[in-house]
Amino acid sequence: MADYEKSRTDIAAEEGFTGTFQGFIEWLGESLIYGGLRVHDPAPDQWGRLSTTIETFTGGFSSDEHLLGRLRFSLWLTTNWVRSERGGLDVYEFPDWLVNDPEEREWLEPDRGLVNDFYRVRTVRVYDRHDRDYVELAYDKPIEVVLLEPNFDVMEPNATLIIRPHRNPLPDPFAPKKQS
């Protein structure tokens, strides 16, 4: 591969993925070059509910590290994270209903190249340009912080900072299941 060519992992990290859980896992496995993932058979979790454990590992390749690193900031994966181990291993545990859900979700947003993160906060405080007065906004769900700058110019910043409720709120795992 020539230096100027993007790897399939770089392209995947930039484009993100929207689809079913099964499609996401297939896409992720095909996108990694030296890293990979291991999908375990469903088994009862510590509460006796059926869940699937998925392990991702980087293989030391920087593009794979970038893609898997972005997953750590995906709301869906962060809420199902179990542990990370030295050497680039991350372990996730997904409930059976999510693994088999036919609903399409945005598992990984396209990379905007700037800030794109989510946080659990109760209050956001925005100060005026003189650092004296501020406005406080209250949130009861995760928020998404996005810095958009479509026309990057070093001499004249023109970015927009967006703070909004996360667009893909997590469903209540204890809510009654939809009848088919």
Score class of each variant (00 low, 15 high):
Glu149Cys: 06
Asp90Phe: 02
Pro150Trp: 08
Glu156Gly: 06
Tyr119Ala: 11
Ala43Gln: 13
Asp133Asn: 15
Pro165Tyr: 07
Gly113Tyr: 08
Phe61Val: 11
Tyr127Lys: 04
Phe118Thr: 09
Thr20Ile: 02
Tyr119Leu: 14
Ala13Ser: 15
Glu55Asp: 13
Lys141His: 06
Ala2Tyr: 04
Glu65Ala: 12
Val82Pro: 06
Arg122Ala: 12
Val124Arg: 01
Tyr34Gly: 09
Val135Gly: 01
Asp64Glu: 05
Arg72Leu: 14
Gln22Ser: 14
Val135His: 11
Asp3Val: 13
Asp96Trp: 15
Pro110Ser: 14
Ile143Thr: 10
Phe61Ser: 02
Glu104Lys: 04
Glu65Leu: 12
Leu50Trp: 05
Glu149Gln: 04
Leu32Cys: 01
Thr160Ile: 08
Glu5Asp: 09
Glu103Met: 04
Gln22Tyr: 10
Ser31Asp: 12
Tyr4Arg: 05
Glu156Ile: 13
Ile25Asp: 06
Pro173Glu: 06
Ala13Val: 02
Asn151Arg: 08
Ile143Val: 10
Asp101Val: 03
Leu170Ile: 01
Pro142Gly: 08
Met1Ile: 06
Pro165Trp: 04
Arg86Asn: 12
Asp3Trp: 11
Val135Ala: 13
Trp107Phe: 12
Arg49Thr: 15
Phe57His: 13
Leu98Gln: 05
Ser63Glu: 11
Gly48Met: 10
Leu98Cys: 09
Glu26Cys: 06
His66Glu: 11
Ile163Met: 00
Arg164Thr: 00
Gly88Ala: 02
Phe17Thr: 03
Val124Trp: 00
Leu71Met: 15
Phe73Met: 05
Pro95Glu: 10
Asp133Cys: 12
Ala175Pro: 09
Arg105Trp: 07
Trp47Arg: 15
Gln179Phe: 14
Tyr127Glu: 15
Asp133Gly: 10
Leu89Met: 10
His66Arg: 11
Thr78Gly: 15
Asp41Cys: 08
Gly59Trp: 03
Leu161Asn: 06
Thr123Glu: 11
Gly88Ile: 12
Arg164Glu: 03
Arg132Pro: 03
Val91Arg: 02
Val124Gln: 07
Asp101Tyr: 03
Glu30Val: 09
Ala159Leu: 08
Tyr34Val: 15
Phe94Ala: 08
Gly48Lys: 13
Ile54Glu: 07
Val115Tyr: 14
Thr18Trp: 03
Phe21Lys: 07
Gln22Ala: 13
Leu67Arg: 03
Glu149Leu: 04
Pro110Tyr: 09
Asn151Ala: 05
